[in-house]
């Protein structure tokens, strides 16, 4: 079973994302900010990270920079999931090592499409 770390300071968003991702057969762990997410990654890297941008303590962009420098940190697929919906932020995320980018609000179809796009789930599964 593939693992996904959901990083978001909203417990509601984490809960919705968890439900969608478990439906896509991911084992889900949660973190409420970048710093806590980094601690989890130091113990064990997930296959995927669904990552909010603006969070207290450490934001998503800074977390991604630290995670990418961990041994094997280039492996997880990072999918941003944020209300920052402008080209400047998207470009910054991509050049900083993000694989995909979701602009909130999101739903199951968008998550499935984006996860299929980066090869985390088969294309056919995205259409179910």
């Amino acid at each position: 079973m593939k693992t996904c770390l959901v990083v978001d300071d909203s417990s509601v968003v984490r809960k919705i994302a968890r439900r969608i991702l478990e439906g896509l057969e991911f084992e889900v762990t949660e973190a409420e900010d970048g710093s806590k997410a980094l601690e989890i990654c130091k113990r064990q890297l997930p296959d995927a990270v669904l990552l909010d941008w603006n969070m207290p303590v450490m934001d998503g962009f800074e977390f991604m920079g630290h995670m990418r420098r961990l041994p094997g940190g280039d492996q997880p697929k990072v999918v941003f999931c944020t209300t920052e919906n402008n080209v400047a932020h998207i470009a910054q995320a991509l050049s900083g090592g993000a694989n995909e980018y979701i602009m909130k609000p999101f739903d199951k179809d968008i998550i499935a499409d984006k996860f299929a796009e980066v090869g985390l789930i088969p294309v056919g599964q995205a259409m179910v």
């Binding site: 979701i102 968008i110 984006k114 796009e117």
Partner: peptide, 15 residues
């Protein structure tokens, strides 16, 4: 819409 461009379109292509 923002919803439509997130269905099937890779983010690099959107940008």
């Amino acid at each position: 819409s923002q919803f439509e461009v997130q269905r099937g379109l890779p983010i690099q292509m959107l940008v």
